[in-house]
Design a protein around this nucleic acid. Sequence first.
DNA 1: AAAAACTACGAAAACGGTTTCGTGTTAATA
DNA 2: TATTAACACGAAACCGTTTTCGTAGTTTTT
Lengths: 341, 341
Amino acid sequence: MKRKITLKHIARELEVSISTVSKALKNSEEISRDTKEKIQAFAKLYNYKPNNIAISLKNKRTKNIGVVIPDIVHHFFTTVVRGIEMFANAKGYNVIVCLSDESFDKEVINMELLANGSIDGFIMSLSEETQLKNDYNHLKEVTEQGIPLVLFDRITDEVNCDKVIINDEEGAYEAAKKLIDSGRKKIALITTESYLSVSKNRMAGYRKALLDHDIPIDESLILKLPYMNIDEDAISAFFDVVNVDAVLCVNEIFAIHGMRVVQKNGLKIPEDVSFIGFTDGLLSKYANPGLTAMAQHGEKMGAIAAEMLINKVEIENEEEEETYHTEVLKATLIERESTIN
Amino acid sequence: MKRKITLKHIARELEVSISTVSKALKNSEEISRDTKEKIQAFAKLYNYKPNNIAISLKNKRTKNIGVVIPDIVHHFFTTVVRGIEMFANAKGYNVIVCLSDESFDKEVINMELLANGSIDGFIMSLSEETQLKNDYNHLKEVTEQGIPLVLFDRITDEVNCDKVIINDEEGAYEAAKKLIDSGRKKIALITTESYLSVSKNRMAGYRKALLDHDIPIDESLILKLPYMNIDEDAISAFFDVVNVDAVLCVNEIFAIHGMRVVQKNGLKIPEDVSFIGFTDGLLSKYANPGLTAMAQHGEKMGAIAAEMLINKVEIENEEEEETYHTEVLKATLIERESTIN
DNA sequence: AAAAACTACGAAAACGGTTTCGTGTTAATA
DNA sequence: TATTAACACGAAACCGTTTTCGTAGTTTTT
């Protein structure tokens, strides 16, 4: 087992000082050609690589970015992580992924841990419980310490930082309009409890679209489901009672379940009922029939978040007035077989 | 912006030495009750937290584990990451995720970067290109430096380290047997090129099952597809030529595509053709009809890999003879509507 | 030949901790 | 009262770098 070699080893072996070695390896003008060549050759031979931790300590820069998300087994978050990783990696940053598992406590613990020097900045999407509790002190503390933070998708107005989201309200409006334009009038909405920022905005878009087209809102057509552990019976019960010709869902899992129930009831998609979901993930693509979806462009969102974060990290802005920006991506409709034209 | 407070600040403020502060905060017996209380109170007041980087440098332990996977937008890998993250987090470790994107070079670069002190050990699954090139020098270098490594799913015999896999061959055997037992005789296999270790093993199981049940292997019933960028036309062409009553697929994407083509051809699943896929992911669950699948238990696999790695990391085994172990998980058949009983 | 200017390098501080060892003060023992 | 032990703390080394500053030794300038 050959241990990693350090500057000290090289210095001792070549009978020069550590500083000389350090400078030689950086090709400093201070060091003579001969000495530099000797040291560089030796370093190469023994495959010297500087220790990242020591450099981090010295520079107070880790080149790590912390990503805190509610769940990774969720196609949208996965794509965002991919976008972040790709961009960050290209810039020489590593990505530390932490899962809050939709729990406030885990979110807090993970952030506190990472905030003690492990990362240069955070990219995160709020856990369900955090949005429910509406407590963002852990985020505020982090920003007060001068650690850059970028929020995406599930955000809050309570915290001053860069943000990147899609235009949820307009997206939902557009989706609903699409259904209305194809002649649908009894349009259901399957959503979560509205403390999730995205659901709230999507619901607003849905309502606005209906009202703008003189369709009264029928509250009984709005089904609120818990975000996790979906109970298909609740969906069945819903469709037993209501009579709809279109369904808008705030995520693709709800849509898939909805489609299954509707099909089980003998209705045809899209002839009898149209479906549109949010998040254009694998399920939408491979559903039967294919699910028309509002694409959230997770990978792009991740790349933008990473770019915003790294920009903030790399400007040594020592007390320059902070200016934050919210980037809004346009959700786009991907038409498949679950809607008619 | 309140900067992070250090031992030095506390020491200066309280007019004691840094060592005293350090000891007091660790509740050392060396320090008097009075002094300890004073220091601890001050530290608490100013929310002192030790700097992770400094501790890492001192201890030569980062409490980070590096996870290098080909892709994260792949449900199986995602579940493994989740398993790793959950276990590691509970043990106080963070997870740095690197995507090789199926590229040999990115795999090498990422590992070299992390190996310079950023992590205590690696968990990884080989990229497609690495398995194709059959070049594992980057893995060997890492292990020679004494950095623990655990390989999962896509492994190689060339490297001596802990491994965790599923019994691919037996799993495929069992799946094929399931099809045979339900009376199927013309069983196709849709797989990747066989340099992927898992595909090779699954194909072996498929062959063995057929031969054991006196079904001759018909090579024309074996379709090899590129792993990425699936071309549905190739699948169409395949099913135009062959006449099958069952299909075994090495992953669920192949299965979903296969089912679509077969259904488009007017055949019924499972009456005319049965399907079984590997990886019991979301697609299998929500396919129409539901896809019978061999579950790979990604989350468990991740947890076990993390456990094996952390064990190795935490034994200070200074030159103790290394002993490696390969953990084999049993793939289990999840029966859904794409097969008959 | 003395002064000035380079050249090539080393010593030391710094990053933020941990830990070993030494020491002055007080209390207990002989 | 002299000796020893216990107590409470500080100095300094160390982890592996980077970087500033000082300085011998040599070369150039006047």
